[in-house]
Design a protein around this nucleic acid. Structure first.
Lengths: 143, 143
DNA sequence: GCCACTATTGCATGTAGTCGCAATAGATCC
DNA sequence: GGATCTATTGCGACTACATGCAATAGTGGC
């Protein structure tokens, strides 16, 4: 998916935020990479590129863009990586504690649980990128 | 619950780890507090107390004790807090994004989901302290 | 009780990310 | 196009936590 086909700029302006060259650069970097980029990779690229920007600005904008769902943050052993967010289908992850393998599962896997929690506690969960840990089929089979 | 009624020392020794005064002090602090303590609170108390210990030692042991389930870590706006772990019943948390209220729910709330994930993907989840975010009944009612 | 083995500690230093504040620059209105 | 209003940036300092390495001290075997 490209962020060109998706008008995130107007969405920001509509909400009273500004579209700055710094924000566009970060979106471009994440999009062009085509893979998850770590905060440091983005900082490094952004320090030199035009416009040359400060690490604090990068971090602030990564948080900002993630909160507005334009990016999506993924924790990966202590560091944070980013991929394009936006209209992407939400989904959850299963991560194996042993081999580190990562399985994506559809977001409706949790809908039954969420519905039950709402019935029982009146609480409406909205986490759409759960990360669950455990052991995958292969690692369960080989102790 | 007290950690005296629960022989965590032998559990450590059995696994080839050592029971050091530093580790015992940290366990004592968390137990006597009777409430969740932040890493900094523990550092501060441990710096002066006998044995006087280094912050790095505290952090290393908090991680160590948490990995061995003798303590349990709770994230709280960017900081980590700790409570006694051990034989305590496991449970999950629902945290309201608006009022910050925290609801504890029994750990078997997720057993149906976990069973389904194992059937469908061969993946056995073992997270026993899930933290789910959303909105509580009161906040849903008052927009 | 003493020894040897190695897990653990203390210290200094490194890393990821945050924050306060003055200066800059998008967006809107005219 | 210019004035204005305030969101955003850059900078430097700061926080929470991690790590490499040499020194220390639990533990199990005798």
């Amino acid at each position: 998916m490209s962020h060109d086909t998706w008008n995130y700029q107007d969405a920001l302006r509509r909400d009273g935020y500004r579209v700055t060259p710094q924000r566009e650069r970060i979106m471009d970097l994440v999009c062009q990479a085509g893979m998850r980029l770590s905060a440091q990779q983005i900082c490094e690229a952004a320090r030199s590129g035009p416009p040359a920007m400060n690490d604090a600005t990068v971090y602030r904008n990564l948080r900002f863009l993630t909160e507005r769902k334009l990016l999506r943050a993924i924790e990966q052993d202590g560091r944070t990586c980013y991929v394009l967010g936006g209209p992407a289908a939400s989904h959850h992850h299963l991560i194996c504690r042993r081999c580190g393998d990562e399985i994506e599962i559809p977001d409706d896997a949790t809908s039954e649980l969420y519905a039950r929690l709402e019935r029982r506690y009146g609480f409406r969960v909205d986490d759409d990128h759960l990360v669950l840990h455990g052991h995958c089929r292969a690692c369960l089979a080989t102790p």
